[in-house]
Nucleic acid binder design. Sequence first.
DNA 1: TGCACGATGAAC
DNA 2: TTCATCGTGCAC
Length: 183
Amino acid sequence: MDKLPRRFYERDTEQVARELLGQWIVHQTGDRRLIGRIVETEAYLGPHDLAAHSSKGVTSRTRIMFGPPGHAYVYLIYGQHHCMNVVTEREGNGAAVLLRAVEPVENLAGRTCGPGLLCQALAIDRRLNGLDLLGEELFLAPAPDSTPIRVVERARIGVEYAKHWARRKLRFYIRDNPFVSRP
DNA sequence: TGCACGATGAAC
DNA sequence: TTCATCGTGCAC
């Protein structure tokens, strides 16, 4: 199966967040292949973006986010849910795109609308943090269909503390898609 | 070493 | 609207 190339990730984060819509995320576990179609994303632009983890600077947790593009940044939130991000732009920029919802394509059980549920359905946890998305275990694949997609822009969820950054429309989803977490 | 607080989800 | 639950970042 084809993989999105490194150069796809090494671009403007907002652009990547938009173009990720409709693409597939593939997790090859021991005996199964789990696949979802990305329908909702959020862009986190870097240290200047007060809602981004990288606004804390380089720490043991944000190390991956500041690393090279095309890698998985997976973290635990509220002590119980995992969130999956893809690192974007050049190494050192501290930018990433959060995957918020997918539509089931292959072997996905349970709900998939919301970052925590998405990770649960795709069996993604912190053990995958830092993984190269051009490897065989976890990667993104180009959308096999070329159905035109209408993109909706909204404010990001759960970042009210981020002052004016909370209002920026950095959340993107496929219009009318039933798997979007919060239309 | 301690403490406040989440890029959430589920229950009430 | 409230709460579970624990890793992270930062104050002390």
